[in-house]
Design a protein around this nucleic acid. Sequence first.
DNA 1: TACACTAATTATAAGGATTATAATTTAATA
DNA 2: TATTAAATTATAATCCTTATAATTAGTGTA
Lengths: 147, 147
Amino acid sequence: MSEGKLQRAIETLKDAGVRITPQRHAVLDYLLHSMTHPTADEIYKALEGKFPNMSVATVYNNLRVLKEVGLVRELTYGDASSRFDCETTEHYHVICNECGKIVDFHYPSLDEVEKLAEQVTGFDVSHHRMEIYGKCEDCQELATRKH
Amino acid sequence: MSEGKLQRAIETLKDAGVRITPQRHAVLDYLLHSMTHPTADEIYKALEGKFPNMSVATVYNNLRVLKEVGLVRELTYGDASSRFDCETTEHYHVICNECGKIVDFHYPSLDEVEKLAEQVTGFDVSHHRMEIYGKCEDCQELATRKH
DNA sequence: TACACTAATTATAAGGATTATAATTTAATA
DNA sequence: TATTAAATTATAATCCTTATAATTAGTGTA
């Protein structure tokens, strides 16, 4: 199933005039198969088996390119480093305050919020982001077990 | 008017057992009177006239303390540095893609989103954040003037 | 298939934001 | 005023990310 996604993503890259290098392919493939919204470093470490000479800069460069083409989204949170997410369908993220786990959350896009913001501020609104924070089930369980 | 706010904030700090040092007082005062959601460095630079020997670490330390007590919120955006905002009333931010300007935007809090997220993910939700991005009026005008 | 052109990679260094450390100073309390 | 723990300072260190320059390699064309 996600092989089709990969093929379509590669088409998108070719259409944009972006070369398909083995490293770029691997980063894209890893992100498409990853469910964990990895950081650049996690991607780097995950691929160093296959590409022992790959530079961290390559990971960052490719993430930038994939972002520019619209295949990947960058998630910037608190004090930690950025995480990267394959732009599939529009969705929000629920983040655990304790362990940092990120869970996808689908919700009808908040168009009316964007509209109101345009009216009130005079901005020409392009998009919005939203994250919901809380304690995940695992961490809730851990907390109760301690008592 | 905001003198009352300052007094109340200082009470909050005292109740939490936090010492009121001149530097801490100045950081708090600056944030309360600031409309621009400043970065740590901006605060540092703004106060170096009054405190020529103040360390950047002091600014960061105080921002952390103010955050822990709940008086200040940290806003983390894309690639830039964090910005800090006095937690007054609940509100959202509209951010200009071009110049980075941040405008406050009031909207009835999205309780139903939090509720649904709890049901779907099993999280114990504590809060959420949302930012709306677009082009501000000034930058729109600049763009049209160029043509 | 080979060539040429340009983009991508690599290795390294540099940059900026934030935090850690240790010594000194100071606010708050009795 | 003396005491004590917390806050400040100065500095160095850390982490994430980007810039640079040289080398390598993808891709369209002959």
